[in-house]
Design a protein around this nucleic acid. Structure first.
Lengths: 269, 269
DNA sequence: TTTGTTGGTTCATATACTGAACCGTTGTTT
DNA sequence: AAACAACGGTTCAGTATATGAACCAACAAA
């Protein structure tokens, strides 16, 4: 491992719950020598990545990281972090895949990607995703801000015979999403579409959107389900990472539980 | 210079105006060997600081910087205490306003705010403020730690025909800043910018940064000057307060003296 | 006083960094 | 189509540079 890598890795030990770290403490955390760590910190300080609190002598992240983040946000649009994982997802599932984002109290489509595998396939063509009737919407209700629920309840439009019609139906469906980690729309929005969806998170660890697979319902089998689920999770991890976020441990836990309870395939690399 | 420092310095070449950089280009910019630069980029990529655009093969800032910034801001929430006063300052002056912070021996931009009033306006796009050539830098020299002076003297880069070129020039300019309470950059950094700046203080009553107005030089008149000065002072008071600091009485005194010697407008609320 | 922290420094050792020269690909010029 | 240039990426001998045990000095508690 290069010296530069070792130096940069020190920054991983700073977090909201451990914002300031002393030299000795950092040595213990990183399992490195004190002199080495000290020099690494010097390098980080020179370049503005960390600064030393003059009172406590401990180190904390410096103002330079703010600038870098600003530059990144100005120049790398969210779409670009989505393209590759979405294409991979569409490819491996053979079904139309899409990413939606939460903005305010609506869930908007950001990008969709169709697979050429079948000539009959789902087309994503909506302005916003109905919260109560789509897999993406259910993810938003389950993992997004609580205010969404009232918005959803005020607009329980009926799209198909399987659309949730009452607050009670909706609440129990949301509960299922929370327990499984997967939004699901079994013909609740369109008669021939079976949607499966997982949440995406941004740098604040808050719900930012969802990535979904919209299968042609007639093709959706219990054998495919875990494959789609596995790959949804992989896509969510990648996109979340690209957006500077982190999947909350609680979500990872329910995913693990969900998958272990079905006969699973080996995870993608 | 340590290998880690050299690696980290590569990040300085990324900016809003140059968001993606190819290997060869970066070598030229940094004046380094290609193999070395390549390995440095590898280290940065491993740690998430940069990522490679798969289409162009060029490098850009990675998602990890977003997380770091998030952590820094949660920990040292300076940006949030700056937003409102800065917006107000830009609004009332009609010019680009910005706040810089001192970390170690460098002055970094923290936030800038442009006014929509004019279509020609200053853009703040630097990694650090030159101490001897910018209004913010002059504030740091005048009110910050004494060590800054030697740093400044060792790097008297000439930006325009009006940039200070000798230690003597610099020293007398600093003296003026101390006497007036205002950092000033009359086309010393860019030919068309006139900067005016006042210091900000933290909870230890030490110099923490500066708030500045970067006017388009052609628009800067002696009539506007006191207005800008008044509002700079108001902004500094608010930000200093938000950061838990207090303006030293000595500074308040020189400000009062500065303003009374010119015909003043009534202060903003 | 002793003992155990802390942040910071030194110096001999040898590890890991360096850069000239290399390769393979791509796109342009002739 | 051959020649050329510019690109990203790789190799390896040689040495510059990172390393860590041992060392301060300052401070706190016992």
């Amino acid at each position: 491992m290069s010296s530069a890598t070792k130096t940069l890795e020190l920054l991983n030990y700073f977090s909201a719950s451990r914002p300031e770290i002393g030299l000795s403490q950092l040595c213990k955390l990183a399992g490195r020598d004190k002199a080495t760590t000290y020099r690494h910190l010097q390098a980080l300080e020179e370049t503005g990545f960390v600064e030393q609190n003059p009172e406590t002598k401990r180190y904390r992240l410096g103002p330079f990281v703010l600038q870098l983040a600003q530059t990144r946000e100005k120049t790398v649009p969210r779409r670009s972090g989505v393209e590759a994982p979405l294409a991979a997802l569409a490819d491996v599932t053979g079904e139309t895949s899409h990413v939606s984002v939460l903005s305010g109290l609506s869930v908007y489509p950001l990008m969709s990607c169709e697979s050429p595998k079948h000539s009959i396939r789902a087309i994503i063509d909506v302005r916003t995703f109905a919260l109560h009737a789509t897999a993406s919407g259910m993810c938003a209700l389950a993992f997004g801000p609580a205010e969404l629920l009232t918005v959803a309840q005020e607009n329980l439009e009926v799209f198909t015979s399987k659309t949730a019609r009452t607050s009670g139906d909706l609440a129990s469906a949301i509960e299922t999403v929370r327990e499984t980690g997967f939004g699901r729309s079994n013909r609740t929005f369109e008669d021939e579409i079976y949607g499966l969806s997982v949440p995406i998170f941004d740098q604040t660890e808050k719900f930012a959107g969802a990535v979904s697979v919209a299968s042609v319902a007639a093709r959706f089998t219990s054998k495919q389900e875990p494959i789609i689920q596995q790959n949804l999770i992989a896509a969510s991890r990648k996109i979340t990472h690209n957006w500077g976020g982190k999947i909350p441990a609680a979500i990872e836990a329910v995913w693990a539980k969900s998958l272990s309870s079905s006969q699973i395939m080996e995870p993608a690399s």
